[in-house]
């Protein structure tokens, strides 16, 4: 189909280029919200779409998390043993549901992932206060499906990585400069749809519940 490519480019390059007024393009959306305000807005937005937000800190998050797992009656928790959070949880494994590790390629344990995991726990790259959003860059330790297939997604968000807007996050974390990972994803609540008569329903194809623990 390289002929198609050639002909498309011939047509596109044959025309005189439009002159564009670009004065409005570069404005960067951000808000001068302090940390408390960012947390307040993030929490409000998340709760508006039925996500749970638990405020904790670096001393108590493990207790909070154990409490959440118990309250939800989880039998399994899928996580990476290599992240800061995963390490701490693994060292206190007796206080948690059976821990599972995503340590093989999906092909090797697809059935188990789809049918025998109650919840997946991930770290986050940061959050966005304006829209109530988590930013995830899945990788070998925390693969893409960890936050997608289990019915409950538990995410840990460090409040000092909570930005006011997406534009601000992309700029400050230098996404373009460091190069994009194979997959990056913004998550703003549990999976949902209003395709049936505009009635909002949760848990369509992704997680039915999203739980955020702020540390």
């Amino acid at each position: 189909m390289s002929n198609a490519r050639t002909r498309i480019f011939q047509r596109l390059t044959a025309v005189e280029r439009p002159v564009v007024d670009l004065s409005a393009r570069e404005s960067l959306s951000r808000f001068a919200w302090d940390k408390e305000e960012r947390i307040r807005r993030f929490t409000e937005r998340m709760q508006a779409v039925r996500a749970e937000v638990h405020v904790s800190d670096r001393e108590h998050w493990l207790d909070k998390l154990a409490e959440i797992c118990q309250a939800k009656g989880l039998n399994h928790l899928l996580l990476s043993p290599n992240t800061e959070w995963g390490q701490a949880i693994s060292q206190n494994a007796t206080r948690f549901p059976t821990l599972k590790h995503y340590d093989r390629p999906i092909e090797a344990w697809k059935h188990e992932l789809f049918h025998e995991v109650d919840a997946g726990l991930t770290s986050t790259l940061g959050g966005i206060a304006e829209t109530g959003t988590l930013m995830l860059w899945p990788n070998g330790d925390e693969p893409r499906l960890l936050s997608l297939v289990p019915p409950i997604h538990i995410a840990i968000l460090e409040t000092d990585k909570l930005f006011s807007t997406f534009a601000e996050a992309v700029q400050q974390q230098a996404w373009a400069e460091q190069g994009m990972p194979t997959n990056a994803v913004l998550i703003s609540g549990p999976s949902r749809s209003a395709d049936i008569a505009q009635v909002l329903a949760y848990g369509v194809h992704g997680p039915k519940e999203l739980v955020v623990v702020l540390v």
């Binding site: 829209t131 994009m180 997959n183 994803v185 913004l186 998550i187 703003s188 609540g189 999976s191 992704g206």
Partner: peptide, 9 residues
């Protein structure tokens, strides 16, 4: 305000 998922591949 935003969709539930914004997937960047």
């Amino acid at each position: 305000p935003i969709t539930t998922y914004f997937n960047m591949i």
